[in-house]
Design a protein around this nucleic acid. Structure first.
Lengths: 216, 216, 216, 216
DNA sequence: GATGAATGAGTCTTCATTCAT
DNA sequence: GATGAATGAAGACTCATTCAT
């Protein structure tokens, strides 16, 4: 079973190796060894070394986005969504240290291709944040003068720098929960117009269970 | 003069070339050409390719930190300091695109050495932010539950992500001033205990000017 | 039937592919694809890539030699034999462009083995020419001072260079018949002692036709 | 001195190595070793392996053509020119075995580029022959029905095949002179309209000698 | 100090060949 | 017999670094 999925094994090996050495300091031979395949086998699944990096980004970012979207969809109020975005983001980073480091560090390579490429998936991720802001503004919860296009970057940047701290430090000073709480609090207080709706009643899953009969 | 300062010329050439191609995709020969020196000459001033990168970081980060410190020292209230930190940071990024891109992208390379190295100068930079927060907390302006160690990273991260946006995009959507204002507003509102002191009277330079007789 | 003869299909595919790309630039995979068999199947019929080349030479040269021998056997006078050798040689080249190109170009590769190998079949082919010359000398038609060992190479070389011209040029300037006529005329006139016997009566096939009742 | 001309040394080494193993079976490392330079040095003088082959052809063919042209220019009658073309061609082959083998064997590679490339220099060489024929026809010495475009190929092909024989055989059966004489005799007798002018008086150099007082 | 020609270690990638199915 | 996924040896080429001038 584990022997079969060469593609997956190579990807996982590459994540590990790239995170360990950086993309340019990683050798195909090392990935092959880590994946327990022959050097040449890698080229049956990927066009070249760079293609492995791209594929990692493509596939793994997809999973992350899906996971975050799914998580925040459980909440109704924009406040909670923002809080859980932060929490989920930092949780994922913690659970996928190697991947996080890879995205943090290697995908910042200034290859022209990467510059453009990065935007596709990444924009999608940032977009989730912008949408939460807009929703909050429509509901009169968030200040109208907040510019979602700037906010989404600031918010993501704050989380991202926090996770870099974790990724690069061997021991972490702050728990994921603490960090997520702190950061959400800065940003939420920073853009609130009026208090957020009470939290208890807003968890959709709770509500759903209670009231809804619809599939949706 | 310009012909003589080989060290400086190599550094400037390297900033340009590294920013253009990335560290690993840059060739010593290209830097030499850009600096108008022979390949071998570079090795009279630097130990190796990597040493150039380190030196850029060391020297240029020093200048940036000094510049930011100097700028915010002109203000008294922590609120203003924070605002002007943001403004100055983004201004510097805009004025030194190549350097900014380099720090943004290349210095995130996960070389073990860099990981550690980065912290020295960088910690100093983050420390400025933490100090502003502590000052504000002491003055009762900022909430006591704000953790400076987290705040500094969040704040820096927000600015950093914003500048990455500029560095990687050919055309920028938002002006430096707008972005600085927005981001400061999120964070300031986010951590205020009570309103900031009025701005007018706090500009130290104004005061200074009135009283000082120094040549400068 | 065609599906069954894997050996033949591989040979034909290889002739095509080798002629297209040259031996060293041809891939086993490409031959396999062209022959509609799996890569591994080729190794059920041939020891290695080189063996395919050898086999092509062996089998196809055999056919060519037989064909030329058969053709010239229809004629009696050495003059006619020489003329029809030229004609038949050039005809075969024209009808088997790929094979001709292969023999022209690839079999000249200087592999030590090939150097020696080439001689076996090839010597047989040249020998036909030498025999015609000797026959002519015995009949007092060709000059005695003509050295068959040199003549055979010169004659073959002339034809060979002519066919190279065709093989490498997309459009041919001269018809096979013209070229054959010209070349034979140079060589025949070049070595004649006395005029060739009249042509009409010597064509064996003509004789045959007159007497035979065969269907064909 | 000998140490200095790296370009020349690499070319000479490559001629030797290519002749020994064939182009595809030759290693850059082997050429480098033979030339007594580092592998990388080769790439300071040539773009790639193939470029070495091309350059050999370009430079050495140039020398050969010049040498042949110069030699036959010493003679006046087309007959003598043809004879000395043959002699000079075979002499050069004998004196530059490696180069001859290279041109014989490797430059027949069917690379598309080579196909076209070959023609430039090569056509020039064949052209010399065609010109001799035309000259002879104008002087009424050679038959008018001889087509120079075919003759030049036939004549060259005859010489070429003869030299292949030498190149590939360790021991040669026939002397250069014998071979040249035989081959010229086939072709000359083959296309003569009337006897060639007497040879004695036609050697230009002879004439020169008579009148000149030069050191030579 | 300055040069830039020379070095040669290092690696991605190819592809003939194998072999488990 | 047939397959084609997997293998891994091999080599062209790059480029940081050196050093004779």
């Amino acid at each position: 079973m584990k022997v079969a999925d060469k593609h997956g094994r190579i990807i996982q090996a590459a994540i590990k190796v790239f995170a360990r050495n950086g993309f340019f300091n990683s050798r195909i031979a090392e990935i092959a060894k880590e994946a327990n395949v022959a050097d040449g086998t890698i080229y049956l699944y990927f066009n070249n070394k760079y293609d492995i990096l791209i594929t990692i980004f493509e596939e793994e970012m997809g999973k992350i986005i899906a996971s975050v979207k799914n998580e925040i969809s459980k909440y109704e109020s924009p406040c909670e969504k923002l809080e859980h975005f932060a929490l989920q983001h930092l949780n994922l980073v913690e659970k996928n240290k190697d991947l996080a480091e890879l995205i943090q560090v290697e995908l910042r390579q200034s290859s022209k291709f990467m510059k453009e490429y990065r935007n596709k998936r990444f924009a999608e991720y940032l977009h989730i944040i912008a949408n939460i802001v807009k929703e909050g503004q429509e509901q009169g919860i968030f200040r109208k003068d907040v510019m979602p296009g700037i906010f989404k970057r600031a918010f993501f940047g704050a989380l991202d720098e926090m996770s870099r701290f974790w990724v690069l430090s061997p021991r972490k000073k702050y728990s994921v929960k603490t960090a997520a709480k702190q950061i959400s609090s800065y940003f939420l207080n920073g853009i609130l117009e009026k208090p957020c709706p009470a939290t208890k009643t807003t968890k959709k899953t709770t509500k759903k269970k209670r009231t809804s009969k619809s599939k949706k």
